[in-house]
């Protein structure tokens, strides 16, 4: 009973490997292909006879082939699974691939070769690139610095402030200050939904940086809810000049620059 099961199992094993939709390939110690499943043959567009007995670098050529970076060699040397990502050229095509190399052991536990499990990640790479592009666009959009008056700049912040964005904001602000010689900069956080300790820390850092540039910073757009959370969290904002609305901040800025707005009598 047990033996029958074992036999069926051996037959099934080969079928299972052939039915896996991802290419699986085995090589010996000299990197000569000793086994490839159906999906692998399909990917290489070759029959089994054309593949077996041929060095793997002639079939799937990557930048790592023949160097110490070869994942298969690394896996065989270390006796451990090694995963990596690469761009491979197969015939005329180039494909971005992700693969895991596993050392193959015989019954005695000696390493006799390696097994490679390949995934085609063309689509994933496409998505990733698109995502990168989009985040770049968003980052560019998210940090506008507007000149409001001679010597007064406004930086409206909308959305979430994470450390990446805070860095970018600081960068764009400092370069703008250096370019325009602004004396006052208003940081409007009206559009920031939640202010926690991390966000407050970033804001404090930004104000510190503007002070070093010789520019006064006013933090505006602090809604009652935000003010309450800041107090509840016990964040010390003493060092920062804060105002409730943008217009209050502008009035303060005018005072700093000794400017006065008058109503014209007609």
């Amino acid at each position: 009973m047990n033996k029958n099961f074992q036999e069926a199992d051996d037959k099934l094993k080969a079928q299972i490997l052939d039915q896996i939709p991802a290419p699986v390939m085995a090589v010996n110690k000299d990197l000569i292909v000793t086994y490839i499943n159906e999906a692998g043959k399909k990917m290489l567009r070759k029959s089994g006879d054309e593949i077996l007995g041929i060095p793997c670098k002639d079939l799937i050529c990557t930048d790592q082939c023949g160097t110490d970076d070869c994942a298969m060699l690394k896996a065989m040397r270390a006796g451990k699974t090694h995963s990596s990502r690469t761009v491979a050229s197969i015939g005329e095509q180039t494909l971005p691939l992700e693969f895991s190399a596993v050392p193959l052991l015989d019954e005695a536990g000696e390493i006799i070769g390696g097994l490679e499990f390949v995934l085609d990640i063309t689509e994933r790479v496409l998505y990733e690139n698109r995502l990168k592009e989009q985040s770049h666009t968003i980052r560019e959009m998210s940090t506008p610095t507007i000149k409001l008056w001679e010597g007064v700049m406004v930086l409206p912040i909308v959305g979430v402030v994470d450390s990446m964005r805070a860095q970018h904001m600081m960068e764009s602000m400092l370069t703008k200050i250096a370019e325009t010689y602004a004396k006052v900069i208003i940081l409007d956080i009206h559009g920031v939904a939640a202010v926690d300790t991390a966000v407050a820390n970033h804001l404090i850092k930004i104000t510190k940086a503007t002070k070093l540039m010789g520019c006064d910073c006013i933090l505006s757009g602090i809604s009652p809810a935000v003010a309450q959370t800041i107090i509840q969290l016990g964040i010390d904002m003493e060092a920062i000049n804060t105002r409730a609305t943008l217009s209050d901040a502008l009035t303060e800025a005018f005072q700093m620059l000794n400017l006065e707005v008058k109503v014209k009598k007609s």
Binding site: E171, T175, A182, K183, K208, A209, M213, C215
Partner: peptide
């Protein structure tokens, strides 16, 4: 005349800035 890059570096180093120091842009 502290440059943006210099200021960025100082902030990155978490230098405690003395508020008594008077600084101007140019």
């Amino acid at each position: 005349g502290l440059r943006p890059g210099v200021v960025f570096g100082l902030i990155d180093l978490d230098v405690v800035i003395n508020p008594k120091i008077k600084i101007a842009i140019n």
